[in-house]
Amino acid sequence: MISLLIISFGITLIYLSIAERMRTYNTLIAVQGALLFAITYAELKDIDVWHLVLILLETLIIKVIVLPYFISRLLIRKHGGGSIAMVVPGFVSLTVVSIIIFLSFLLSYLLHDDQIQVKYFTGAIAAIFTGLYLIIVHKQVFTHMMGYLTIENGIFLLSLAIGNEMPLIVNLAVLLDVFSSVLILGIFINRLEAFSSLDVDQLKDLKDS
């Protein structure tokens, strides 16, 4: 069951690499949140029930409801669903992310560590590097934010690998979500409208000479 969910998580990464519309990105991030919610339940169901309920609620509310809602409300509606300028052709991104997933699997498998659960590690490392790839190849603030949220989902997945013994770690990972949703979305995105097309090229006033 968990393997199936993590494979689905990997598929969302592939879709993210070729997405061309803000709405698609947002939906994929929400789907990742829902998958993480299911994985959390499957992996942590043996921990203290109140703790589990708290983590599940936090995951569901923040990753599946709050973040996608705010993104939709603050950005997508104001930019008419918004298409994303593809700096790198879709098939190149598709190839790169596929290679990232393959290498992540290879790395997890080759490490041969008893403590590494290959499936978690593969999903997490692939998500972290896919997020970094999105940030590097895109020039819009929106896609940078999506890249960051993908990294964060990867880290959340990694935290689940040891969450059974240390629910505090999962709580801290959730704290990372709260942090990003409150600050990045709640306060600054509506201010960033000042940069009309949300292009990072407009964020170049601060320089050395």
Binding site: D113, I116, H144, L158, S159, I162, I169, L176, L192, L206
Partner: peptide
């Protein structure tokens, strides 16, 4: 200027603390 600096600071710090968190997870492993 301050908006640009804040956005960059917030974004890169967020990535920075996320990277550091991954480090702490390795401690757990």
């Amino acid at each position: 200027e301050s908006l640009e600096a804040t956005w960059k600071y917030l974004f890169v710090c967020s990535i920075g603390v996320a990277i550091a968190f991954a480090g702490i997870l390795f401690l757990g492993l």
